[in-house]
């Protein structure tokens, strides 16, 4: 059997996904047996021009991590889509926009003003902002354009599969790679993870009836190590997050923050969590309800921690 040709690419990414892609332990040898990595900017000789020269669809699969934040990200996403038979959004940034997607609560202007003018260490009397084209004495320099809105990969090009997680766990990554290697591919659009149900299903904490009179912030209490964190009033996102990670955070006594994205069939992860939380608030009195929810300091930023660009609303409206 001919070896598979795989491309790895990072767009607006932290690099954690690059590490995770190959943090598959000794299985790396199995991968090396079955596939050649033909394009991998951070590990291999990198040339956009080389990719441009490749025939369309000559790459079997592209694992694309990172969101679309700049014109360069978008350009490469389109290029790789054209050259690849299978496009995989790998990791939360590329799948849903992830934490860096919280930038969609603001816009470019606000971000620039803050970073290049307002921050207390910045000394910029001329109010200089980075420019896409700058004349310097020796010639011209270019920078890619910084977009107003962070986009997911699927909002930019057609995507075949999604691999959840920030970053995806080793076993999740392997599930995707194994599907590629064996050719046993799931239907287009599948989110590849061991679990389709919620993180709660994998969580070893004791679960009882969930009725909440007061929400706490993680620094305010020392939770009981055995009992469900949500039942103790911590905003644990496990109930509305796809399983597959093995419930890592609750096992470290910290609430799940939702990095594996929505459970199967849910389109807007934030709306789902909002709904689930409302069901367990233990009050039928409007005033008391208001008091209880006022303990949630940043509902939008919490419910959409990893999925703002992929949400129904996508970004905040700025007047």
């Amino acid at each position: 059997m001919a070896k598979l040709k795989i491309a790895l690419y990072w767009a607006a990414s932290c690099g954690g996904c690059d590490i995770a892609t190959l943090a598959i332990g000794e299985k790396i040898l199995k991968l090396a047996e079955a596939a050649d990595i033909v394009f991998w900017p951070i590990g291999l000789d990198f040339k956009y021009a080389d990719v441009e020269k490749m025939p369309d669809k000559s790459i079997d699969a592209c694992l694309f991590n990172g969101a679309i934040r700049t014109s360069e990200n978008e350009h490469v996403a389109k290029l790789l889509r054209a050259k690849s038979k299978i496009m995989i959004a790998y990791g939360s940034c590329s799948y849903e926009g992830c934490i860096p997607g919280l930038s969609n609560f603001y816009n470019r202007q606000m971000t620039f003003e803050h970073v290049y003018i307002e921050t207390p260490t910045t000394d910029n009397p001329g109010k200089i902002f980075p420019q896409t084209k700058v004349k310097v004495p020796e010639g011209e320099l270019e920078l890619p354009e910084f977009y107003d809105t962070v986009k997911t990969l699927a909002q930019t090009v057609d995507v075949d599969y999604f691999v959840p997680g920030c970053p995806p766990e080793e076993k999740t990554t392997w599930l995707a790679l194994e599907a590629l290697i064996t050719g046993k591919l799931p239907p287009k659009g599948t989110v590849i993870s061991h679990a389709v149900k919620a993180v709660c299903d994998e969580c070893p904490r004791k679960k009882g009836e969930k009725k909440i009179k007061k929400f706490y912030r993680p620094y305010e209490i020392v939770p009981d190590p055995e009992i469900c964190l949500l039942e103790q009033g911590l905003l644990c996102y496990g109930i509305a997050t796809r399983g597959g990670c093995g419930a890592l955070c609750p096992q470290a006594n910290m609430p799940c923050t939702g990095c594996y994205g929505p459970v199967e069939g849910v389109i807007d992860q934030g709306a789902h969590f909002l709904s689930a939380l409302s069901s367990i608030i233990d009050s039928n009195d409007p005033e008391e309800i208001q008091k209880i929810i006022d303990d949630i300091p940043d509902p939008a930023g919490t419910f959409y921690r990893y999925s703002l660009p992929d949400s129904l609303l996508r970004r905040a409206r700025i007047k």
């Binding site: 609560f105 934030g270 909002l274 929810i293 949630i296 940043d298 509902p299 939008a300 930023g301 419910f303 609303l313 970004r315 905040a316 409206r317 700025i318 007047k319």
Partner: peptide, 8 residues
Amino acid sequence: KVLKQFGI
């Protein structure tokens, strides 16, 4: 509360 944060 969420909508407000979205500027709606």
